[in-house]
């Protein structure tokens, strides 16, 4: 039942706790369609950012949550197939390596008490250095407020890139959602119908960005650009 767990030293026990939580959500919450994605929401916009590890999606979702967005999750997008809504899961954000300094900096510019939001740093974990950040108070207050998804953005981090919004086809977005889902194959038909509906109702694009600030600008720009077409749905 728990063969997958590698024992870790007690001083990085928090990391074990996080891995345990993740494992339980992944194996026991199959009633939700699960995306490996950052998910945030604001004023009727439900944004899914599916991506592999290292794309910066966790940092991006966390970053957006300190700029007016409600954090659903930095890596576990949960979709309720009955109500057709995204379900918030605002547990502590797991920041890794370089993104720790980035987020401290990001949060400190809007909140003097930022130090209270970060745990100590855990060095030498299987994923390098890890630090946990408390989600914004508003995200925790709204943890029972669900949102219908209507925006899919595939984030690509490239330190040398010129920030850019690139169009992608809906078939591509469809497949990226399928690939990002941990339990698409288990749920089967209902998952196929759900993703078809999400893509049908969503505007989709890819953004390439060199840093968090540019990424947030691109997201806001795409939200603005698509506000009319989303209004029609």
């Amino acid at each position: 039942m728990s063969d997958e767990f590698v024992p870790l030293p007690a001083k990085i026990g928090m990391v074990s706790l996080e891995m345990g939580l993740n494992w339980h959500v992944a194996s026991d919450c199959k009633q939700y369609l699960m995306f490996h994605a950052g998910v945030v929401a604001k004023e009727g916009v439900g944004l899914i950012m599916p991506a592999a590890s290292g794309s910066g999606k966790s940092t991006l979702a966390a970053g957006l949550s300190y700029r007016g967005w409600q954090l659903h999750s930095d890596e576990f997008g949960l979709y309720d197939m009955n109500s057709q809504e995204l379900v918030p899961y605002p547990r502590a954000v797991s920041l890794k390596n370089e993104s720790i300094a980035v987020m401290r900096d990001w949060v400190s510019s809007v909140d003097d008490k930022y130090n209270e939001y970060f745990t100590e740093e855990f060095h030498g974990t299987p994923k390098g250095t890890i630090c946990y950040m408390r989600p914004h108070k508003d995200s925790i207050d709204k943890m029972h407020v669900k949102t219908r998804p209507n925006l899919i953005i595939l984030p690509i981090f490239d330190a040398t890139a010129t920030p850019e919004i690139r169009p992608i086809t809906k078939a591509m977005a469809f497949f990226r959602l399928v690939l990002s889902s941990a339990n698409y194959g288990d749920i089967g038909k209902d998952a196929f119908l759900a993703i078809s509906r999400i893509i049908e109702e969503s505007e989709v694009c890819e953004i390439i960005y060199p840093n968090l600030e540019e990424a947030v600008k691109l997201v806001e720009e795409f939200v603005e650009k698509t506000s009319e077409s989303r209004g029609q749905l």
Binding site: D28, C29, K30, Q31, N183, G185, D186, I187, G188
Partner: peptide, 16 residues
């Protein structure tokens, strides 16, 4: 109900 839904998906998927 949620737990049962989760387990129903598991067994249906295994059968399929």
């Amino acid at each position: 109900q949620n737990t049962f839904q989760s387990n129903t998906y598991k067994s249906q998927s295994s059968t399929r």
